[in-house]
Nucleic acid binder design. Structure first.
Lengths: 179, 179
DNA sequence: AGTCGATTGTAGCAATTGCTACACTTGTAG
DNA sequence: CTACAAGTGTAGCAATTGCTACAATCGACT
């Protein structure tokens, strides 16, 4: 019965786990608090209001995702664009990172609906991925900047098709890409 | 005060309009009913329960989207893949079709979260688009089937980037595509 | 010891949710 | 006309929502 003081930092990890399993856009305070071993009362106390909780969670989850990505991404560049693509798709399908995909589409949907918090989060996540891609394009690529953007677009399209059960289309697209 | 009998068919158009503006995943009966000039009581009566309403709406909206697409898509094939891509992206950005995009990401998010109804809807929408693409690939394309799938993946990636405010990336990807 | 601020529990409120019970009015078939 | 089913309005229920009021406890400091 460790009655340790609950700080926002203590609360975020279990809340993030809950959100990765149950979604974030429609999450409500009481179940979220329960997952963290506290009460809605305390979430409001620590984060001000529900929006504060969501903001903190988005931030924390972005960090988690970035760390997971950093750990999983290989440092050596792939020989060509297609191989780069394939590697990234494999990594994001990893059990460690796959749970973030569900969350990702929630973020996209909220962005499309005009939610600025979610949109900012999505915007910077895309920036993160784009940065990594640009820095890891195949050596001798004729247009690393454009190529990275092309790959990112393909990655996101593939992952969307995955999400709706049309991985077959994404797979065929990968085969047809550059050849 | 035309007290005409309300049938499901009468109710669907105004409800679809409401949903296009306010989203569908989290829509609640009372506002939805109000938009259609009726009551939650009647929605349950006509559609059984909330899920029935959503199902009917998804179906109806899919039809609307298909009709709008059919009307907007040009019948002559584009000279090359890049131009095909550009034309479709232009069309889906049309005021007629743009409102469907917001809805689309809700459908994707729900699919990713495991909702079977939404997933089925998304699945068939992708089938629809793929079918049209395959039938309208540039003449002389070396691999129409694969090319259509590649284009679809790029389209969806582009639209996602649009949704999160990174249309710049999508635009650059389009430039980098095939050259 | 006692004071003071940070932290936490207990209740509760007003609003919204999907849905139901019950009564009423229709329109139509006999 | 009458019976019967389809359709509709009014109320309401139990659950959940974000959030607040109030009071208690805790820890550190004087």
């Amino acid at each position: 019965m460790a009655k340790t003081r609950m700080t926002p930092e203590t609360l975020l990890p279990p809340m993030a786990a809950h959100v990765l399993e149950h979604g974030i856009a429609g999450v409500s305070l009481r179940p979220l608090a329960k997952a963290a071993g506290t009460s809605d009362r305390m979430l409001i106390y620590h984060f001000g209001n529900r929006q504060g909780v969501i903001d903190a969670l988005l931030d924390y989850l972005a960090g988690l995702y970035e760390a997971g990505l950093e750990a999983a991404l290989p440092s050596e560049p792939a020989p060509d664009r297609k191989e780069t693509l394939r590697r990234i798709l494999e990594i994001t399908a990893t059990p460690q990172l796959a749970p973030f995909m569900r969350l990702w589409w929630e973020v996209v949907a909220a962005s499309a609906a005009g939610d600025v918090t979610f949109r900012k989060s999505a915007y910077s996540t895309m920036g993160l991925l784009l940065g990594w891609l640009e820095a890891h394009m195949p050596q001798g690529d004729p247009d690393p900047a454009g190529g990275a953007r092309l790959l990112l677009t393909l990655i996101e399209g593939s992952q969307m098709l995955d999400a709706v059960g049309r991985a077959d289309i994404a797979e065929a697209a990968l085969v047809a890409f550059e050849g």
